[in-house]
Design a protein around this nucleic acid. Structure first.
Lengths: 194, 194
DNA sequence: TCCGGCATGTAGACACTGTCTACCAGACGC
DNA sequence: GCGTCTGGTAGACAGTGTCTACATGCCGGA
């Protein structure tokens, strides 16, 4: 009742987002998306010349959703930077683990037209937020905040990936994410005052 | 002149390792491996019932190579723990970046028989080395060394991945890996004394 | 020496994929 | 009414992983 005639291009993306969140990247074949959209397998070609471009459009939707989720979690941004970084990290990891298929797609650069469509740049605004929060939270002198933000982002990314795979659960023995998240933030921000 | 008659099973793995390091995971099709091994596309089935199992065997070779590289770098292990962790981190990242295809394969769990063949466990010995070095390097009291090791590993893993993709180069603006590596170690081990 | 089994690889079918090309129905301006 | 163009269909093609039927050669026992 809501995707009536929204244009095939939009419906293909919508179907793809639904499919990847529900069944994972394996099901994201061109023909399967076309089938679920109720069109022939050649139809998507009018809007997406290649399979990769359709997947890139779906992934871009994922980056948008992640950005929305993070800004929603950050709220008005009046909390102190350290608390905001905690919220941001939690929101990031929760998104990755709640939408594993989509998160995997977003970083499967072999499935995406990474260079041509500026998909890597899709995570830039989020990155700038981290840089800003880190500088306001205070860094040791002589530390480039972009380096620190990159390392922190890499830590969250690796954590999400290893956790989704079950490796961390295997090695640390813990079944909870919270202590890991706390350890990440303490490592990069120094120990909590108080 | 050296892989004469080494048994098809071994040769398939060898060809696969060569192929993935030279051309990446995309070229690791069952039929291509068989072609390069000089056999028909049905032959591998005698030794690997499914494509995933062949890929898993190739990935296991990668874990072995990574382990060998790391232990070689660590040497006799007489340096202090912090220096050893630095060498370990450097060796890990250098391996990941020198063998991108293989490293990607090792963590593409959708291509591997992750549960059935204990492939996740292949990284366990390396993980235990990190736990040991971290405890000897000294941690703040109340910190589970396994948690700390997991977080550190996640950081290295995420760094390798984002760097291989070019995202970090894009965000941090730097074209060198060294400051990132130093930042990682300083974050997790505290600032260098002296 | 022959012979039955067994291991090992071949060849072809099947369903599936992404891409490409020829076609076709319908709307729209003139 | 007619040409044109947009948006979708249908089928071909090469490639993939899996499965099955078949050939071939080797080895142990009579």
């Amino acid at each position: 009742m809501h995707e009536e005639d929204a244009g095939l291009r939009a419906r293909l993306i919508e179907v793809g987002v639904d499919l990847v969140t529900r069944e994972g990247t394996q099901s994201l074949t061109l023909r399967e998306i076309a089938r679920r959209a109720g069109v022939s397998h050649g139809a998507p070609r009018r809007y997406f010349p290649t399979h990769l471009e359709l997947l890139s459009a779906i992934a871009r939707e994922g980056f948008a959703a992640l950005g929305a989720e993070v800004t929603r979690a950050l709220g008005d941004g009046r909390a102190d930077p350290r608390a905001q970084l905690t919220t941001l990290g939690r929101a990031y990891l929760e998104f990755a683990l709640a939408n594993r298929g989509m998160y995997e797609l977003m970083f499967r650069h072999d499935l995406l037209e990474s260079d041509h469509l500026g998909l890597r740049e899709a995570s830039l605004p989020l990155f700038h937020v981290v840089v800003d929060l880190l500088t306001r939270a205070g860094l040791r002198s002589g530390v480039d905040p972009r380096i620190a933000a990159g390392v922190l982002w890499a830590n969250a990314h690796g954590l999400a990936q290893l956790w989704a795979w079950g490796s961390l659960q295997l090695t640390t023995g813990s079944a909870e994410l919270e202590p890991l998240l706390r350890a990440v933030l303490e490592a990069h921000l120094g120990q909590e005052p108080q």
